[in-house]
Computed example of a mutant assay.
Amino acid sequence: MDVTHTPVLTERVIDLLAPALRRPGAVVVDATVGLGGHSHALLEAFPQARLIGLDRDTTALEHSRRRLCGLGDRVDLEHAVYDQLPDVLERLGVPAVDGVLFDLGVSSMQLDLDERGFAYSRDAPLDMRMDQERGPTAADVLNEYDVDALTRILREYGEERFARRIARAVVTQRQSAPFTTSARLVDLVRDAIPAAARRTGGNPAKRTFQALRIEVNSELEVLERAVPAAFDALAVGGRLVVLSYHSLEDRLVKRALTPRSVPSVPPDMPVIPPDAQPTLRWLTRGAEPASDTEIEQNARAGSVRLRAAERTAAEPGRAHNPTGGVR
């Protein structure tokens, strides 16, 4: 396996985090450390910084440990889902951090390993768990959910127009034999949707696989908790960067952060009190795509959207750190 994959938008991520990570004693969190590509680049770019890397995938963590092992006590790697960041920081005795990076979605390693079941292009067990030590698999979802529940996740998480047709086909076919591998599901989706809809948009099973993966790993629920928690963990002047790969993630990130970028007072109030000032400043204009050049060099960048923000003030009542920053 190639463990030196090319991470997406590395130079842009470094540029956005640089003002915060050049500070003495800076701490950066890679909340989705994966194979360690972004983490390695950040540690090389900021030789005084400390990195805390989180991942729910134990296989990915092992590769990251090998990749980052030469950096010694500058690295802490934790088996954790990214909404557990506050607990990790408390356990490590870190009151606040200077940067947080999220690189969301499925990793190249997870796609490349057939036994993980993420790829619809190869026949494999229907697993799709990012943490293979716990939780239901995609096969469990297909074999246990009723038509309404399957329709909901396909429609909400896969934005699938033919969600109910696919759900009904799944429930019908599983009566003869449970679903265990991906090829049968791919065939079912292809047969369930109209022929005209199969002619465009790539593999018609793509949306179904996305929906199952999000459901199995509770990705949106976790992200909804994780983004505010990550911002709350930032010191004043700290920065948050999020790389999303589909519109559901990007909309959730925007929705979670936007209220912090406006004063918490009625719009007609002539004077904004100090404790009602915005605590967030956007560093990007909307969601940034990758350049054509980057997409040519790294196909995974084709769907990426980047948002970044800086913490401009502490929440009322937060304590000041002795070093001068607000923590």
Results as ranks from 00 to 15, higher is better:
Asp87His: 15
Val88Asp: 11
Val88Ser: 08
Leu89Cys: 12
Leu89Gly: 10
Arg91Met: 09
Leu92Cys: 11
Leu92Tyr: 06
Gly93Gln: 02
Val94Phe: 04
Val94Cys: 14
Pro95Ile: 03
Ala96Arg: 11
Asp98Ala: 09
Asp98Trp: 00
Gly99Cys: 02
Gly99Asn: 04
Val100Met: 07
Leu101Ala: 00
Val106Gln: 12
Ser107Phe: 07
Ser108Met: 05
Ser108Thr: 08
Gln110Glu: 02
Gln110Lys: 02
Gln110Trp: 01
Leu111Arg: 05
Leu113Asn: 04
Glu115His: 13
Glu115Met: 15
Ala119Lys: 02
Tyr120Glu: 04
Ser121Leu: 14
Asp123Thr: 03
Asp127Lys: 06
Arg129Ala: 06
Arg129Ile: 09
Arg134Lys: 12
Pro136His: 09
Thr137Arg: 01
Thr137His: 06
Thr137Ala: 08
Ala138Met: 06
Ala138Pro: 05
Ala138Asp: 08
Ala139Tyr: 09
Asp140Ser: 09
Asp140Ala: 10
Val141Cys: 08
Val141Lys: 03
Asn143Ser: 01
Asn143Gly: 01
Glu144Pro: 15
Glu144Ile: 07
Val147Cys: 09
Leu150Phe: 02
Thr151Arg: 09
Arg152Val: 11
Arg152Met: 08
Arg152Ile: 10
Leu154His: 05
Arg155Thr: 08
Arg155Leu: 14
Arg155Glu: 08
Glu156Trp: 06
Tyr157Glu: 15
Gly158Gln: 07
Glu159Trp: 14
Glu160Trp: 13
Ala163Phe: 12
Arg164Phe: 05
Arg165Thr: 00
Arg165Lys: 05
Ala167Ser: 13
Arg168Ser: 11
Val170His: 05
Val170Cys: 03
Thr172Pro: 11
Gln175Ser: 12
Phe179Lys: 00
Thr180Pro: 14
Thr181Ala: 14
Ser182Phe: 13
Ser182Ala: 09
Ser182Cys: 06
Ser182Asp: 08
Ala183Lys: 08
Arg184Phe: 02
Arg184Lys: 05
Arg184Cys: 12
Leu185Cys: 10
Leu185Ile: 08
Asp187Leu: 04
Asp187Pro: 05
Val189Phe: 00
Arg190Thr: 12
Arg190His: 07
Arg190Asn: 13
Asp191Asn: 05
Ala192His: 00
Ala192Asn: 00
Ala192Trp: 00
Ala195Lys: 15
Ala197Gln: 13
Ala197Asp: 13
Arg198Gln: 09
Arg198Cys: 12
Arg199Trp: 09
Arg199Lys: 07
Gly202Glu: 09
Pro204Met: 07
Pro204His: 00
Ala205Ile: 06
Lys206Asn: 13
Phe209Val: 04
Ala211Lys: 03
Ala211Pro: 11
Asn217Asp: 08
Ser218Asn: 11
Glu219Gly: 05
Leu220Met: 08
Glu221Tyr: 13
Val222Trp: 06
Val222Cys: 11
Leu223Thr: 10
Glu224Arg: 14
Glu224Tyr: 12
Glu224Gly: 10
Val227Trp: 04
Val227Ile: 12
Val227His: 03
Ala229Tyr: 15
Ala229Pro: 10
Ala230His: 01
Ala230Gln: 01
Phe231Ile: 04
